[in-house]
Design a protein around this nucleic acid. Structure first.
Lengths: 205, 205
DNA sequence: GTCTATATAACGATAGAC
DNA sequence: GTCTATCGTTATATAGAC
């Protein structure tokens, strides 16, 4: 579409980055245009000059947050690998992506829950249709008796839950286990080492 | 404290129930006092008559949402049962509680993430201190070689992830698996039957 | 492109009649 | 207790100078 206009100005980028941080921390309704402007160190009216409205700015941030992360993850399931190797690789890389973007899961899911049809087509095409080969691989291995006897969807949900949820539940876990930030980081580091084994042992026979 | 004043008026209850629904669906900042009033079928100014301010109303809703659910769950871990029985019972009852209150996990965690110190004391006393016996039980069984070789905290996080996350990620899962509401309900029903076995087999040797 | 100043709208909150 | 009418504040958005 816009081939020539990829020299997005540095102001525009600074605004976008600031908006990403504020929206991810506070959500659409909790975010303030003034706070975004302050963090970007620009005048508030420049927000409107570049993005017209809060909703439009949010939409860009939201879509890019998803588009930058989802395809990366889905592609991990479409490599030509034996199930166990694929699982280990998937878990490892997925964790790395979340560690680099720990606020994104809750951000995406909170906004999606307020409006469940948002991005429906995107998700169906970019995730739904692209994971069917992996689900088929799971079913194939199940027929061969190589995995636990469970529908492929349940297995995938179990795996994704254990990867993602610790980051969403972080404030709870950190409090009840009395971990400071460093301890939580250590907890995640430990998880990165142990989770692949745990999942492989749980899923494969 | 207030022993006599437990004849909370029906208007007050209608407001509270409406507020619970709206806050859980939209969050603190996304909720509108007008929408709460509409849903409760009362005049907007009555909200202030009974609860003074939006923040105070929210605080009541938020605390009661948590207090009604957390102690129930924690107590399941403090029964005098062998590990396997306790796990099966915990998973089954926890799922039932969430099925009855599917919006609560995301609601709690979204607000907690915006303000991580909120309810810290409550969580530490009502969860943190009360789960240490269970963690100890896990460690004891681990020493005996009856469980997978993993820190107790990691095991508990794995279990809670698989119980809770499907509800938080519902819009995603429903879309990518092309499930309508009935199909998702069926998916959860299936999960209730299969998850205890899956977790027991994963955790215990 | 960037700023100051200001318009406009939304929302929470209050006053006061009944 | 419940209503109508209205206030005061805050936040988004725009106008216009530079």
């Amino acid at each position: 579409m816009n081939k020539k206009n990829d020299q997005t100005s540095s102001t525009e980028l600074k605004i976008f980055e600031a908006a990403r941080e504020v929206f991810q921390a506070k959500g659409l309704e909790g975010a303030r245009m003034q706070e975004i402007a302050d963090r970007a160190e620009i005048n508030k009216s420049l927000l409107h000059y570049y993005y017209r409205s809060k909703d439009k700015l949010f939409e860009k941030v939201y879509q890019l947050s998803i588009i930058r992360v989802i395809p990366q993850i889905v592609s991990l399931l479409n490599q030509d690998l034996p199930l166990e190797d694929k699982l280990r690789n998937f878990i490892d890389k997925y964790l790395e992506i979340i560690i680099a973007n720990p606020d994104i899961p809750l951000f995406i899911l909170h906004e999606l829950n307020k409006n469940p049809t948002r991005l429906k087509t995107f998700m169906l095409n970019e995730i739904g249709k692209k994971i069917t080969p992996f689900l088929e691989q799971l079913r194939e291995e199940s027929r061969k008796g190589n995995t636990v006897d469970l529908p492929a969807e349940q297995i995938l949900v179990n795996i994704m839950s254990m990867i993602i949820f610790p980051f969403i539940g972080r404030p709870v876990f950190q409090t009840i286990f009395e971990m400071d930030d460093a301890a939580f980081e250590q907890f995640i580091y430990e998880r990165k080492k142990t989770l692949p084994d745990f999942i492989v042992q749980s899923v494969m026979k």
